[in-house]
């Protein structure tokens, strides 16, 4: 298990970081160096001021009100997934340092309870979202639109979420943020080590598999349609040009 963790959760993460950040930089460079469309591709109604355009960009990108209007079901699941993913990301920041204020208010036990609840909700919503998408792609009348890339990404996401949920639901009461933080901060300071608590139970297998899927997902990220995470800003901005 120790070898598995060293591969997926130490060296794998370093490799992923290089591929992910390098890939995203390369992607942005490619977009930035391709000349703009000679034709203004905006549509109406179009905000007149710069602030209006910026506001519309934020609303279109983060809320997608038009999409909500035409397909509310899809919008609810997509919104739930993205908000939960954002919540999960924020929760994972505890890997770097403990949140300010919250632990002081809640106490150590309170903080663990809070993390258990919020992590469980986020993890469940993401799981539901991904299962909905898999079902929609597989059984929808337009399933022919899907290509293997779509299923690969959903499979990787499913792996990340299921193993994350496994750690949250099965080992949530056993291993707390401080232990994971010890491991993650050691990576950030380039003195990688794997704490004994992670090797003492099967939580190490869960973490290793969670990280395996995460590594694969993030390494593929810059070369997949997931670049909509950054591309959506400029493509939505063009709408107001």
């Amino acid at each position: 298990m120790e070898t598995y963790l060293w591969i997926t959760s130490v060296w794998g993460i370093y490799l992923t970081a290089v591929v992910f950040f390098g890939g995203m930089a390369w992607r942005i460079y490619q977009w930035a160096t391709t000349p703009k469309s000679p034709v203004r591709l905006g549509m109406f109604p179009k905000p007149k001021s710069g602030a209006g355009r910026f506001g519309k960009l934020l609303a279109d990108t983060f809320i997608a009100p038009q999409s909500a209007k035409i397909e509310p079901t899809m919008w609810i699941f997509a919104m739930a997934f993205h908000v939960a993913a954002l919540g999960a990301f924020v929760g994972h920041l505890r890997l770097i340092r403990e949140f300010p204020l919250l632990p002081a208010w809640l106490g150590e036990a309170g903080m663990n309870t809070f993390a258990a609840w919020s992590g469980s909700i986020a993890g469940t919503l993401m799981l539901v979202g991904v299962l909905f998408w898999i079902a929609r792609r597989t059984f929808g009348p337009y399933k022919n639109l899907s290509v293997p890339e779509d299923y690969l990404l959903l499979f990787l996401l499913l792996g990340v979420i299921v193993m994350g949920d496994h750690m949250r639901f099965v080992y949530g009461g056993v291993v707390h943020a401080a232990t994971y933080r010890e491991w993650f901060v050691s990576l950030l300071t380039f003195k990688p080590e794997i704490p004994a608590e992670l090797l003492a139970s099967n939580v190490g297998v869960s973490l290793g598999t969670h990280m395996l899927f995460t590594d694969l997902l993030l390494m593929y990220f810059p070369f997949s349609k997931l670049v909509h995470a950054i591309g959506a800003f400029s493509s939505n901005l063009v709408r107001s040009e």
Binding site: W31, T34, G231, A232, S235
Partner: peptide, 11 residues
């Protein structure tokens, strides 16, 4: 062009 490339990359 940039818009075309993005449309093809992000759908």
């Amino acid at each position: 062009n940039r818009q075309l490339k993005q449309y093809l990359d992000i759908c």
